[in-house]
Every structure is written in structure tokens, then in C-alpha cells.
């Protein structure tokens, strides 16, 4: 809580549902958007997060927005916030709130099995450009992002 206040980070995660996902992405039109799905129980997710934050820091002036969506259960939200704060992950930060997990995953990306981590890259118009499952190759990701500015 103290760290949250010091860093000026919000205490909770915004919920995102299957029907709200598209709206969430569309809310950042004009920016290149990278949505990263992660969870506290996912070791590769935790491992790649600091590098994604660094990339966001480096490229935010060009117009990159990193959106994180935690796939944690509601009872693990506090753990998710603790990790995000410790890793200095900026807003916007979401917690998936799926009435139906299958429908949520399909709404995000029909080709996605639900395996974590997963990252989706959108161009400035909100069009889906790339979909990555597993720990992302940062060089490949950054090259793909740079093409979109």
C-alpha cells in the first residue's frame, strides 16, 4: 500500500470482460498498443514483464502503450497488484473478469488456446497486427512495433 502511494499507482485493477475487451483496445486509437496477458502463477510471464516495461518506457514517447491484463482469479488480485507495483508496471492495468473463460479467450483472439503469457500488438487504428504466445522474442517484438510508428 505504501509503495502504491509513493509511486502514485492505483490500488486496484480495472476489470475487463469479453464484451469490454474491444472497447478497451479502441480506447487507445492513435497509439500503438501492446496487450500483454499474464498471471502471477505464470513464471515466464513474470520473467518477461520487466523487459516489456523497459520497452514501454523507451518507446512511450513514440506512442507505445503497454496494457497488461492479469488472468489471475479475483482472490489473487492483491498478489497481482503487488507484483505489478514491484515491477513498476504502469497503467493501464486490468484484471480479466470473464463470465465465460472460453468466450473471453475467443473474443481476444480466436487462434489463442489460452496459454500464458500471450501478447497482442495493435496498430494505431486498433487493427490487430501480431499475436505472440509464450515468452516473446523482444527483438522480434520491438522490430514489429517500430514498423507501426
Amino acid at each position: 500500500m505504501f509503495l502504491t502511494a509513493v509511486l502514485g499507482l492505483p490500488a486496484g485493477l480495472a476489470p475487463v470482460t469479453e464484451s469490454g475487451y474491444a472497447k478497451m483496445v479502441a480506447g487507445h486509437k492513435g497509439k500503438v498498443v501492446l496487450v500483454n496477458f499474464w498471471a502471477t502463477y505464470c513464471v515466464p510471464c513474470r520473467k518477461e514483464m520487466p523487459a516489456l516495461v523497459q520497452m514501454q518506457e523507451r518507446l512511450k514517447a513514440k506512442g507505445l502503450v503497454l496494457i497488461t491484463v492479469s488472468a489471475d482469479e479475483p482472490e489473487d488480485e492483491a498478489k497481482a497488484i503487488e507484483f505489478l507495483n514491484k515491477t513498476r508496471v504502469p497503467e493501464p492495468r486490468y484484471l480479466r473478469k470473464a463470465a465465460n473463460e472460453d468466450a473471453f479467450i475467443n473474443a481476444v483472439e480466436p487462434k489463442w488456446s489460452g496459454a500464458l503469457p500471450a501478447s497482442i500488438l495493435y496498430d494505431k487504428t486498433g487493427r490487430k497486427v501480431r499475436f505472440f504466445v509464450g515468452e516473446v522474442d523482444l527483438k522480434v517484438l520491438e522490430a514489429a512495433i517500430l514498423k507501426l510508428f
Binding site: 515466464p44 488472468a71 473463460e101 472460453d102 479467450i105 475467443n106 489460452g114 500464458l116 504466445v133 509464450g134
Partner: peptide, 9 residues
């Protein structure tokens, strides 16, 4: 067919 969050193989 259905999907759920899980770890990658």
C-alpha cells in the same frame, strides 16, 4: 471444444 487459461506446453 472449449478453452481455458493455462501454461504453455
Amino acid at each position: 471444444e472449449a478453452k481455458a487459461f493455462g501454461c504453455t506446453i
